[in-house]
Amino acid sequence: MQDFAQSFSLALMHIVTLDPDLIEIVGLSLQVSLSATVISCLIGLPVGAFVAVTRFPGRSALIVCMNALMGLPPVVVGLFVYLQLSRAGPLGFLGLLYTPTAMIIAQSILITPIAGALSRQVLEDLHKEYREQFSSLVLSTAAQIRALIWDGRYSLITVALAAFGRSVAEVGAVIIVGGNIDHLTRVMTTAIALETSKGDLTLAMSLGLILLFIALGINALVSTFRLTASRYGYA
């Protein structure tokens, strides 16, 4: 227990003094996960919006798929991306394995279904409400999608936050394709996993604390957005 208390205060010290190693790891984590979030939204949002407002054969099957893919196990995604990027794989010539780019690719694959499926849900609900008015105005599909995205922006921001939360907290995919290389591909989750197994609890705990704060921060942001939106009649 002594050990724990000591590590804990040391961990806090690391955070308070902005330990450079710590900063580097946290910085890379945020960079990788934010990039993945942006990419997942750029792909997921338009797909989700299109599925939300259009009707075509196979649509319900596609929705079931999108929803199912939200639960992709990170290690499976990691393995898949590894196989593509490894020297023998089809994309091996790019030399991306064990780089931050590989990690961004893996996390993007992991969370694009989340961005797509959740925004589909958000926009479809809104579309149900607006449909008659849109139909009366004879709006084009593109104009409908633009209006829905704008009016659903508060909910869509929470979708992006959910995707970010999932990517920043996952370890399985980034450890396989990133390899937790010091100063290169070390992110919070992989560092925690490996430092803990090596017995360096101090670093693991400071990173754990930061991760926890990020998770809490995301939740706080989500509630703030929800509250603001409903208070001002935009929800």
Binding site: E129, S136, V138, A147, D151, Y234
Partner: peptide
């Protein structure tokens, strides 16, 4: 022709704006 018509619904649907 439909663009030259307008309708006010029994339950008005207003945008979140």
């Amino acid at each position: 022709v439909r663009r030259q018509q307008a309708m006010v619904f029994q339950k008005p649907v207003l945008l979140r704006r």
